[in-house]
């Protein structure tokens, strides 16, 4: 595990998190908790013309959970909403290479749970709009 904290990419995202911060005028937001440890992650997004115009995160959690959010959110800025469900576990974990033990994978995957929940909310809202 010691190698994990030598990963420059991860350290860079801890020291200079991207898209971190509460969004006051978010169109949609969600909050997830890692029940194993109590880590909290909130996601905020602005939606425009079927795309994620901007997405940010905030929370209280370990370096793995927070840097994982920072890394994956950097990749999905501006994507089509329909592609949100296509973010995979593999895609999230690849940011950490082989260094994550099963319990720390839960930390890295907290952001994925958040994105999935956000997607569910979006679909629900879309259904309501159709009705």
């Amino acid at each position: 595990m010691s190698d994990l904290y030598a990963r420059e990419n991860m350290l860079d995202h801890i020291k200079n998190p991207r898209n971190r911060g509460k969004m006051v005028n978010a169109d949609i937001k969600t909050k997830v908790v890692n029940r194993h440890c109590g880590d909290i992650l909130s996601l905020y997004a602005n939606i425009e013309a079927g795309k994620i115009k901007k997405i940010t995160f905030d929370g209280d959690g370990c370096a793995v959970a927070m840097s994982s959010a920072s890394m994956i959110l950097e990749d999905i800025q501006g994507i089509d909403l329909k592609n949100l469900s296509k973010v995979t576990k593999k895609q999230v974990l690849k940011n950490f290479g082989q260094d994550l033990t099963p319990s720390r994978q839960n930390c890295a995957l907290l952001v994925l749970e958040g994105l999935q929940q956000l997607n569910k909310k979006l679909n629900k809202n879309a259904k309501k709009d159709e009705e």
Binding site: M1, Y5, H36, C37, D39
Partner: peptide, 21 residues
Amino acid sequence: VHSHDLASILDGEGIAIRSGT
């Protein structure tokens, strides 16, 4: 330093402690 990160770094040194609630 989050307690999980502390525990992970210590684990790299062979030290077993607990983190969480």
